[in-house]
Amino acid sequence: MSADTTKNPKTDIADLPWLGRKLLWLDNMKNVDRIVYALFVLCTALFAADFLYHKHTYLTIEDIPGFYALYGFFMCAALVICARAMRVILMRSEDYYAPNDVEAEEYPRDQLGVDDEGETKHV
């Protein structure tokens, strides 16, 4: 589906835009781990925050410490697990509706800016 000419994993770092070079530390798995640890710390701090300030609530359920945190966590986990289960019944191959659907088609190349500067001659 993708344009092959742009596929070049061994790009010279010097060819990347300035911002792209600055963000390259994300390529290092160790740094990704650091972000995950930072998220753990942040979540702990936010949970603890519930004990440190006066919460203005309308509902009794909101008074449960960490209600929003627990609700967000467990509902999202349930969402993903349910959605994953839905796949068993609902998933079909990409060309299921073909040719009446764009899903299995290539995007017309002449309307894209893959090859040139993207500022001229697009339909």
């Binding site: 995950v36 998220l39 753990f40 942040l42 979540c43 936010l46 949970f47 925050a49 519930d50 960490g66 929003y68 945190a69 627990l70 609700y71 967000g72 966590f73 467990f74 509902m75 999202c76 986990a77 993903v80 697990i81 959605a83 994953r84 839905m86 796949r87 609902l90 998933m91 079909r92 191959s93 990409e94 299921y96 509706y97 659907d101 899903e103």
Partner: peptide
């Protein structure tokens, strides 16, 4: 709290491989 804990759920599900991977498909 709501947002960061749902991000936490995403991270944990992603790292444990439970998060459904992107597959060429229609639903």
């Amino acid at each position: 709290q709501l947002l960061f804990f749902s991000a936490l759920a995403f991270t944990i599900l992603m790292r444990t491989g439970i998060y459904p991977s992107e597959m060429k498909s229609v639903n």
